[in-house]
Amino acid sequence: MSIAISIPQIFSAGVIHRVPWTVHIPFVVDRKFPRLEDTRLTTRNLNISIGNSHILKDVNVEIPQNKITCIIGPSGCGKTTLLRTFNRFVDSIEGVRIDGEVNLGKQDIVSAGAGEMSELRRNIGLVPQRPCPLPMSIYDNIAYGCRIHGVRGKRKLDLVVQHYLEAVGLWEEVKDRLHTPASKLSGGQQQRLCLARSLAVEPSYLLADESTSALDPISSRTVEDLFVKLKRDYSIVMVTHTLRQAQRIADYVIFMYLGEVIEQGDAKEVFGNPKHELTRKYLSGGIS
C-alpha cells in the first residue's frame, strides 16, 4: 500500500494523488486528463419547463464535495429532471426550456456548446438506471471513453482497463474473458461494468439515477457499498425511490416536492430532525 501512494507522487511532481482503495499495484496511467481546479456543482434559480408544464421551480442547490448526495421525493417531483440537467440530458426532451444557471466550477452548463459538452460530460459521469453495456467487448467498454478523449496506446489502455475493473471488484471475475461481449455478463456485473466505464474517464461527479433499482438485492448492495467507498475520490449524486437506501448511504439530502426543493441539508439533520412539514410527512410515509 505504501508504494502505491508514493509512486504517483513522484510522477505528478509532488501533488498528492488520491489512489482508490482497491489498488494494490502502482498505478501510473491515471491523470490522463486535466483535472478541474474548481469542481463545485451549483444551480441558481434554475427553472425548467416542458411545453406548458413547469417541472423545476427556482431550484438552488450546491452539491457537496466527496459526499453522497441523495435527491429524494415522491415520483414526478422533478428529481430525475434535476439530475439530468447536470449533464444536459434534459436536452433530449422536445420543447424543453431551461432558465437560470447551472455551474460546474466556472463553467456554465446551460450554455455549453457541443465541444464543451463533451468535456463536461467527461467530468460528470452517469451510472444508468438499468445496466447498459455498450455493444462491444468488456475491454472496449472501459477503453471506449478513454479513446474518445484521445488516450491511445494498448499498454496504457490495458492498465486503465485493469485498474478500473479492479476498482469495481470485477477484475478477478472477468480477466480471462476481457474480449467477450459485455452483454454476456450478469445484471449485477453489467452495472459494475457501467460504473467502471464512467470512472475510467476520471469524472469529478457521478450521477446515479436509481442505479440499483433494476438489480437483485445482493448486487444492489454490492453497488451501494461501492458508492460508499468511491466517495473518497468522487462526489456522488443519486436519485432514489427507496427511502431506506437514502438513509443507509446519504451524507447530504435534497428533498423535492412538485418541482421545488423543500429542504436540503446533512442527512442526519434532515432524517433526524426535519424542519419542514412536508418533509416530515414524506419521511413518515404520508406522501408517496
Binding site: 449533464n87 440530458f89 457541443a114 459538452m117 463533451s118 468535456e119 463536461l120 460530460r121 467527461r122 459521469g125 452517469l126 444508468p128 438506471q129 438499468r130 447498459c132 453495456p133 455498450l134 455493444p135 462491444m136 471506449y144 471513453g145 474518445i148 478523449h149 457501467c194 466505464r197 464512467s198 474517464v201 450521477l207
Partner: peptide
C-alpha cells in the same frame, strides 16, 4: 439508455451513432 451510455462519457452524437 444505450445512446445515453455513450453520450454520458462525452461522446458526440455522431460517435454515439457509429459506436
Amino acid at each position: 439508455e444505450s445512446r445515453e451510455a455513450a453520450l454520458s462519457l462525452g461522446a458526440t452524437r455522431w460517435q454515439t451513432t457509429m459506436d
